[in-house]
């Protein structure tokens, strides 16, 4: 009996310390909308999703708890943890809402600090988000804020994208191939790399969707539902190693 109590006590101590080690438990990055606090209705999520389609490294997050941190401290660490934003552009943005702490923050990646400046972020929070939050309409506030952020970003980002079109991994290899057509050995090397990449990519995706694909041939209903869920699922969304340095603004209501 006594041993059991002691054992329980040790277990408690160990759990306590392990919870200190992993001080912050961040939610999983399930898509461009992470509603961990569960305050967004499906309709709002759908609207936000269409807005976010214009800005692929902007993420809307609601969290149930800041775990005792300030929202400023939580925000940049979450951004770094997820790696929102492209690696060398650092163009990630988080709209972070902590309803229980009544705090909201726009966390801006290094690369966008000149576009989505602190004062613009602050204006978005004070004029678009907080008035709705004060009325108690979280959904409208978050939607408004997202629209504000994306319209500021797309005003400039669109032209930036025209200058440097995104080259996918495959086409980059083809481009390199064209440069070195004379060298047959290199060509063979590139084809080998391409094949390896294709095998790797097919393995990565087949593990999740292979079964469903085979069912498609049998049941068209499943195929349709799969397409819909594929559209909704956003499982492919990932951070791309963007960096954060504390830029942005926050507010309370």
């Amino acid at each position: 009996m006594r041993k059991k109590i002691l054992f329980g006590f040790y277990l408690f101590i160990i759990l306590l310390f392990s919870s200190f080690v992993h001080a912050i438990s961040f939610p999983n990055l399930t898509g461009q909308i992470v509603d961990a606090a569960g305050i967004l209705t499906p309709q709002t999520q759908e609207k936000i999703r269409t807005v976010l389609a214009l800005s692929d490294q902007t993420v809307v997050v609601t969290i149930p708890s800041l775990e005792g941190l300030s929202i400023e401290s939580y925000g940049y660490q979450l951004g770094r943890y997820w790696g929102i934003g492209n690696k060398n552009k650092d163009d990630g943005v988080l709209l972070l809402v902590a309803p229980n702490e009544r705090s909201v923050r726009i966390e801006v990646g290094y690369g966008l600090e000149e576009i989505l400046t602190d004062s613009i972020s602050s204006t978005i929070i004070q004029t678009l988000i907080i008035p709705e939050f004060k009325k108690g309409d979280m959904n409208a506030g978050i939607l408004n804020g997202t629209k504000g952020i994306v319209s500021v970003l797309t005003g400039k980002v669109v032209s930036v994208e025209e200058k440097t079109p995104v080259i996918s991994g495959k086409s980059m290899i083809f481009a390199q191939m064209e440069e070195t057509t004379h060298d047959e050995l290199l060509l063979i090397l590139y084809i080998t790399i391409l094949v390896i990449i294709m095998i790797w990519a097919s393995r990565r995706y087949s593990s999740s969707s292979n079964r469903e694909q085979t069912k498609e041939f049998i049941n068209p209903k499943i195929a349709l539902s799969r397409k819909v869920s594929h559209f909704k699922r956003e499982n492919h969304f990932r951070g791309r190693g963007g960096k954060f340095g504390g830029g942005g603004a926050s507010g309370k209501w």
């Binding site: 602190d118 004062s119 972020s121 602050s122 830029g247």
Partner: peptide, 18 residues
Amino acid sequence: FLSLQSQLEGTENRIAVA
């Protein structure tokens, strides 16, 4: 002033992070 205040606030936060 509001703009400068938010810039100062953001800068203080950047200082803390850095």
